[in-house]
Each structure stands twice: as C-alpha cells, then as structure tokens.
C-alpha cells in the first residue's frame, strides 16, 4: 500500500489579534496515511486536530512543512489536490438549509463541476444507503440533527474522492443516531475502500472503525500506532486478588518492596490486593509472598484496559509497563 497523504513537518502558529500572543497550534507534525487506511485523529480540545485537518484540506496554510495528497503538493496545487479530498468539517452546518436533501447533494456535485445527470444514480444510491430517500424533498432546516449529519456525510461521499476527512462526525448526536452514523461509517470503511480520517472525541467510534490512531497533544504527535498495538502496549498487567485473610506486616512490606504499583484494601471482609506487574511472570513472586502465611486466594481478576484509558494515559504522558516512553512511530 502506498501513501495517499504525506504530512511532513507542518507547523502552524496563530497570533491573537489583541494581545499579539503567539499560540503554537501545530508543532512539526509528520505522518503518512496509506491508501485505504482508516485513521483516527485523537486529542484533547485545542490539541491541534482541527488545524491539522484544515491544513490537509487546504483551507489553512501551514507556516512550514509540506502536505502531499496523492503526490500533489496541496499548497502549490491546491485545487488539484482537492480533487482527491472531501470533508465534513462542521457536520450539519456544512449544508444549505434552504435547499432540500436532494438539492443539496446535486448542488455540491455541481460545485465540483459534475452535472445532475451524471450524478443521478449516485445520488439515488446515497439516499438509499443513508436512509434519506423518504426525506429527499424535505428542506434541510426541517431535518433532525442526526439526519443533517448523515446528509453532510453523504455530500462528502458523493464526491467520490479517495480521501474523506470527518471532523467529529458523531458530535451532539443522540445515542441512537450516533450508533446509526457509526454503522454508516463502518460500512463506508468496509465497502467503499476509501481512505478515511476521523477526528473525534468518541473513543468508541475510533476503536470501532479505525485501524490506526494518531494522537495529537499540544500540537505534537504523541502516538501514531495501530489501535490493536496500542491496547497491547498499554495492556495492564494489573490483577485484583481477593483474599480470604488479611496480609500480615511482613507480607505487606514485601509487596511494597517488590511491586511499585499496588493497592491494598484491608478494610473489607474479604481484603483486596491490586498490583500492576512489569512482567506477567512476576505473579509467581506475588504467590510466593502470599504462600508465606498461607493466605487463601478467593479470586483473581485481570483488568482489561479500555482504549479511552490508553488515550488518557498517552495524553497525560504516562509511560507503559516496561516502556520508558510513549511509543511514537511513523508508519
């Protein structure tokens, strides 16, 4: 798979109008996106996600660095680069509210120089796929937020570009519509074989749909890895052991000495001991300590890490077990 998007060392500094204070929105970001990949762009508010997306879209010029879209420099040949990209940047706000669902689709196609005739079958297909057929003559301002969001995505799909950028596609949607949009995005990812970049706060969306995630914090890429690998990397070798008896002083002392991260809840009928292991084999050391006093073990539970926890750990700059620094790799 060759790269369709190549971002090399882009930076962007904004200056506040009144105070002239400079804000580094994006700081030397580099990454590549392969054809057909589905990437999640994550980061806390103000991390630089939207700025990065807008620079990829050619709506914002980087102060330095280069963005190649299918080999085309999007600063030097902006319009040519845009033939490969479509985006939903502000969801429902990206639509003409005085036009109907169908008219919006046809108008945006026209703005790309495509006739209504040439786009007719594609419009029909999208209306069906996005379950908007029965609303095709409805004015956009009369649609629900979820439907508007679906239409905005349909408009982006209509362009038939290799790359689709979606900025917060599920933001502000109720659970049901959010789920529906997620299903649609999954279908796009599976069936349409397009390169999709999703920026979202919704971890479920990212975990569900994306193969790889790029986490941006304070304008920098802090992680660029496959979600699967990140989960493995951050996989907590954390165990909660329910004990039949309390630990004695010696045992507590030994645990404190050998395990850096542990928690002992003794104020329970069945005390609980939580430990984080550097290596899975370290559990035997723990058993040895428990054996010293023949402490009965009632249950052993292994904690399963959620992607949201991984994200929080990365953003907070926490290290992984046995890994000194947050993994950052360029693919």
């Amino acid at each position: 798979m060759d790269s369709i998007i190549e971002v090399s060392g882009i930076t962007k500094v904004y200056q506040k109008r009144k105070t002239k204070e400079k804000i580094q929105a994006v700081d030397n970001i580099s990454f590549q996106v392969k054809r057909g990949e589905i990437i999640g762009l994550l980061g806390p508010n103000g991390a630089g996600k939207t700025t990065t997306i807008k620079m990829i879209c050619g709506l914002l010029k980087p102060d330095s660095g280069q963005i190649l879209i299918n080999g085309v420099d999007n600063e030097k040949h902006r319009l040519r680069a845009l033939t490969h990209i479509s985006a939903v940047l502000e969801g429902s706000r990206n639509l003409y509210w005085r036009l109907t669902v169908r008219e919006n689709l046809e108008y945006f196609a026209g703005n790309r120089g495509v006739s209504r005739k040439n786009v007719a079958s594609r419009v029909e297909d999208l209306l069906q796929k996005f379950r908007l057929k029965d609303k095709e003559t409805e004015l956009v301002n009369r649609l629900s937020r979820g439907m508007q969001q679906k239409l905005a995505i349909a408009v982006a799909m209509l362009a038939d570009t290799e790359v689709i950028l979606l900025d917060e596609p599920t933001l502000g949607l109720d659970i049901e519509t959010g789920y529906e949009v997620r299903e649609i995005l999954k279908a796009i990812a599976k069936e349409e074989n397009r390169t999709v970049i999703i920026s979202s706060h919704d971890m479920d969306v990212i975990q569900d749909i994306c193969e790889r995630t790029i986490i941006i914090n304070q304008g920098k890429v802090v992680t660029d890895d496959r979600i699967e690998d990140l989960l493995k990397l951050f996989e907590v070798r954390s165990y909660t052991i329910t004990l039949g008896e309390h630990l004695n002083e010696k045992q507590e002392h030994l645990i404190k000495e050998r395990f850096l991260d542990y928690q002992y809840e003794s104020n329970r009928i069945q005390p609980k001991l939580s430990v984080e292991l550097l290596k899975t084999e370290d559990i035997y050391q723990l058993f040895d300590i428990l054996k010293l006093n023949e402490t009965p073990v009632e249950a052993i539970d292994r904690e399963i890490i959620q992607f949201e926890q991984v994200f929080m750990k990365i953003v907070k700059g926490e290290t992984t077990n046995g890994v000194d620094q947050v993994k950052s790799q360029s693919v």
Partner: peptide
C-alpha cells in the same frame, strides 16, 4: 456564519469560480 463557506473552499473548482 452558517458554515458552508468552508465547503466552497473544499471544491476543486475554487471559491472564485463558484
């Protein structure tokens, strides 16, 4: 104000032509 101007900016036709 409505948010459609960015979409015009995303068209390969270019805003000035639109």
């Amino acid at each position: 104000t409505r948010g459609t101007f960015e979409q015009l900016g995303m068209s390969p036709s270019g805003i000035w032509r639109i």
